[in-house]
């Protein structure tokens, strides 16, 4: 707790609040302290609002899908594309630090795919922000879609912090990740409306305690909807697809009523 700052010798230290007060009365000649009180992510949130407005204008529902690397987002999406055929017109915005491997895997299955590589800048962003999502929207026929799934960069920390304009956040968790993940990455597990529990076909081969995991999940997110499935075998896919149709119907009704409120920008209450 307290204040952190770095000294010119590179050392970082922390003060108790009481040591330094609030630094008011700082009297260096000519220096003026100006109160700003602006959200650091204000610009991101403005772009997210523009994305949201574009989604509303095109009548497309958007789900931000997150997970750790290797939990099975792409495998889930492959099955989702074929399972939703005839029910919803689906598009995918594929976020990856580098390569088009996932986008290539999803291409040719009947859904338009737009790839956003995040590797510009400092060796690859670990998340999609609203601007990156916006940069990929032009390559999608939004007007012809009912549902857009944004496959975020595999990471259990950073993606939870960035509003990209989505209607709902969902995550894929694989039972190979261990029971304790909700406690280690509580903000991510808390931020999602749906937690897909994947790789259920491996249950018999692992020392994995599903009830223990579910109890940990309930601790950080008592209201999350849990969908147990195997993207490999297809077991449980129907429930996932039903939820996608449900969220589509829910937002379409809200859109028709002209109500598209922006969610409060916060990791926990967002």
């Amino acid at each position: 707790m307290g204040r952190f700052h770095r000294h010119t010798d590179g050392s970082v230290h922390e003060h108790d609040h009481r040591d330094v007060g609030d630094h008011t009365g700082y009297t260096q000649t000519g220096t003026e302290r100006v109160s700003v009180l602006e959200n650091i992510l204000a610009e991101n949130d403005r772009i997210a609002d523009r994305n949201r407005a574009d989604f509303a204008g095109a009548g497309v529902t958007t789900v931000n899908l997150m997970s750790s690397p290797g939990a099975g987002k792409t495998s889930l999406l492959k099955r989702t594309i074929t399972s939703l055929e005839g029910r919803l017109r689906l598009g995918i915005l594929e976020g990856d630090i580098a390569t088009s491997l996932d986008a290539d895997e999803l291409g040719g299955l009947g859904a338009p795919v737009s790839l956003v590589n995040t590797s510009a800048g400092f060796g690859g962003e670990c998340h999609l922000d609203a601007t990156m999502v916006r940069s990929g929207l032009g390559r999608l026929p939004l007007d012809q879609l009912d549902l857009l799934i944004i496959e975020n960069v595999g990471n259990l920390v950073c993606p939870a912090e960035f509003d990209v304009g989505q209607h709902a956040r969902a995550m894929v968790y694989a039972i190979t990740e261990g029971e304790e993940k909700p406690l280690k990455y509580p903000v991510m597990f808390h931020a999602c409306e749906v937690v897909v529990v994947n790789k259920l076909d491996l249950l018999a081969h692992l020392d994995f305690d599903l009830d223990h995991f579910l109890a940990n999940l309930r601790t950080v997110n008592p209201t999350a909807r849990v969908i147990q499935l195997s993207a490999r075998s297809g077991e449980g896919m129907a429930e996932w697809c039903d939820w996608l149709v449900e969220i589509r119907d829910r937002t379409a009704v809200a859109g028709a009523a002209g109500a598209h409120p922006r969610p409060h920008n916060a990791a926990l209450t967002g």
């Binding site: 260096q28 220096t31 100006v34 109160s35 700003v36 959200n39 650091i40 916060a266 209450t269």
Partner: peptide, 16 residues
Amino acid sequence: LVSGEELLIASIDRTG
């Protein structure tokens, strides 16, 4: 939640 989700630029010091 009373506090804990802040992500703000509080102030800047302009030297003139």
